[in-house]
């Protein structure tokens, strides 16, 4: 049993492994989320994000390792720790025949701090009718109800499992705007999995990237931005070997050879070093530009991507 400690991070997983039969969904994953930060866990479908969330919510017992919230083991103390957590599931799963107002009444009986007025206000902002059975709402409206339910008890932490999956652009925007609004207002800790890389880039403090159950990246977004760069240059006369040697020290994640030259994304960019290498290898027209999270993600999770050294992982 893990005793709650005031110094423990709000969310931590250590050595977490999950299997479904012979298939490994999570392989020795460790990460933690600092209080008041936003952690975005990224990964392609089937990478293991939902399995990790299920472990974090005490819905799935890992084969090995632990998942703790506020220092308490979630599997053993699920009901207790979830009193501090707001959850938005991947698929909103409220009883389909129950009207939204009834759902709120049910949630209010369970959460002593449930803010019914705030919930109703939020629904009005979303434009979701309270007297319609949940099953008759659109997918976007269901997601908005789920978000409203998660935020109403004023949780210390939010866990969102791909909350915008399947939503249209408008609904996605409203979810993130609401989320950002709440975050600004409360300074909550947030752990979310998502495919909305652009939106995440605006709110995440730290990013984790899963591929095939393994955590490739667990790092502050600023740090990622600092060390990842996209490089472009024309090929030197003596060919690919020189290019490879030149890039090797910068830890390339992807290298694409195009008719006009080479485009690469590197994960250990240092300005002085790049300048030296470019000069030494006689690279033509060298260009350097920052990498968007989406490009970085794609570069990392592509099966052909070069291996990188995980940095910042616990």
């Amino acid at each position: 049993m893990t005793a709650p400690t005031t110094s423990a991070p709000p969310l931590a997983v250590a050595g977490l492994s999950v299997r479904y039969g012979r298939r490994i969904a999570l392989d020795d994953v460790s990460l933690s989320v600092a209080a008041g930060s936003v952690y975005a866990l990224l990964g392609l479908n089937g990478a293991g994000k939902s399995s990790l969330v299920r472990c974090l919510l005490g819905l799935r017992r890992p084969e090995s390792g632990s998942a703790t919230l506020f220092g308490r083991d979630v599997w053993s103390h699920r009901a207790a720790v979830l009193g501090e957590i707001g959850v938005v599931p991947e698929e909103p799963d409220a009883p389909p025949t129950l009207p939204v107002g009834e759902i709120a009444r049910f949630a209010a009986r369970i959460h002593p701090k449930f803010d019914r007025t705030g919930f109703d206000d939020r629904l009005r902002r979303f434009g979701v009718p309270a007297n319609v059975p949940f099953g008759r709402l659109s997918k976007g409206q269901k997601g908005q109800v789920a978000l409203a339910l998660a935020l109403a008890p004023s949780p210390r932490m939010l866990i969102l499992d791909d909350p915008t999956l399947g939503l249209d652009a408008k609904a996605r925007r409203s979810v993130f705007e609401e989320l950002i609004g709440e975050l600004a207002e409360r300074g909550n800790t947030v752990f979310l999995t998502t495919h909305e890389l652009v939106a995440v880039e605006g709110i995440a403090d730290r990013v984790g990237i899963l591929r095939d159950g393994r955590l490739l990246v667990d790092e502050d977004l600023e740090s990622l931005r600092a060390r990842f760069r996209r490089l472009r240059f024309t090929r030197p006369n003596d060919g690919d070997a020189v290019v490879d040697r030149a890039l090797a020290d910068l830890s390339p994640v992807s290298v694409e050879r195009r008719p006009w030259g080479v485009e690469a994304i590197v994960s250990a960019f240092v300005e002085e070093r790049w300048t030296q290498l470019a000069g030494r290898a006689d690279l033509g027209s060298p260009e350097v530009e920052a990498v968007r999270l989406e490009d970085l993600f794609l570069a990392l999770v592509e099966p052909t991507g070069a291996s990188i050294e995980p940095r910042g992982a616990a």
């Binding site: 819905l59 979830l82 009193g83 799963d93 409220a94 959460h111």
Partner: peptide, 16 residues
């Protein structure tokens, strides 16, 4: 149908 999570992601014991 995967809807049992509605109860289980709340501070509700399995027994309840």
């Amino acid at each position: 149908d995967g809807r049992l999570g509605f109860d289980f992601v709340r501070p509700v014991s399995g027994f309840s």
